[in-house]
Design a protein around this nucleic acid. Structure first.
Lengths: 132, 132
DNA sequence: CCTCAATATGATAATCGTTCTCGGATTGAA
DNA sequence: TTCAATCCGAGAACGATTATCATATTGAGG
């Protein structure tokens, strides 16, 4: 990783576009999906998208989420990142309700909490039916 | 993914070794770490380790955990998978206490919950000090 | 105890998300 | 306007995981 938490960022249309696209996405989105959307308007490099996402995460604007499919998804830091994940087929869906409404502010000495993500594991209805 | 939830599994020393090594590990472990440990005793293929892990996850014996470093960690399904993750340097540490003691059994129609993982995001003490 | 089809293993190639490299373009403070 | 710091884009490199495939093992049935 490079840069600093409070490092000076330059304003470029690429970063503005990344942030705007993410804020308009219905839910968490991958770097590649973001790249595809942005490219429909103007040419933009994939590496640039990744760099912008990394910078926003460092600045606390975006938060990453993992669903176990090998891709990192990004969303605004204020949004929830709770998912149901099927251990059999890997299918996942976002949960509307937040499972951890009151997160302790001091979980470890000096650690400043800014957000969280919950992955709930189990078996989806379809996989259960297929093996009943 | 291959295999079935209730598929017939054969007993091989490789799978037994994988399960034993994981149950003895102090905390969540990656496939590569597992492979290195197992290889100290007997030769075993990395692909075999991955296949065994996948099978155990499908059978509900193991659960995956993600810390955002691009590697999947595995642990017994009963264990907690709560982590503090620094958004700046990527450092992480496991939490002893479980943040979601009472998970609702019915989050979605037909979904059978077996476990969960919480990632708490923020900034570690060192990164805060470095940019104060 | 044998047979044999189903399944597992291992070495390695392939995949694919992500990061790195580097020459050239932009930004913004002075 | 100047210019150093920073960013961009294209593609190579990287690394974790998965696929391939020939061979070996397992275990239910005879």
């Amino acid at each position: 990783m490079r840069g600093h938490v409070g490092a000076r960022r330059r304003n470029t249309w690429q970063r503005a576009a990344v942030l705007q696209a993410i804020s308009q996405a219905p839910c968490h989105i991958t770097a590649e999906e973001l790249h595809d959307r942005l490219r429909r308007t103007r040419p933009i490099g994939l590496a640039t998208v990744y760099r912008a996402l990394d910078a926003f995460v460092r600045d606390g604007v975006l938060e990453p989420a993992h669903v176990g499919d090998g891709k990192v998804r990004y969303g605004l830091a204020a949004r929830h990142h709770d998912h149901l994940v099927c251990l059999h087929c890997g299918a996942w869906e976002a949960l509307k309700a937040c499972l951890v409404p009151r997160l302790p502010r001091r979980l470890a000495p000096g650690f400043k909490v800014t957000g969280h993500q919950v992955e709930v594991y189990g078996y989806c209805a379809r996989c259960q039916a297929a093996t009943a």
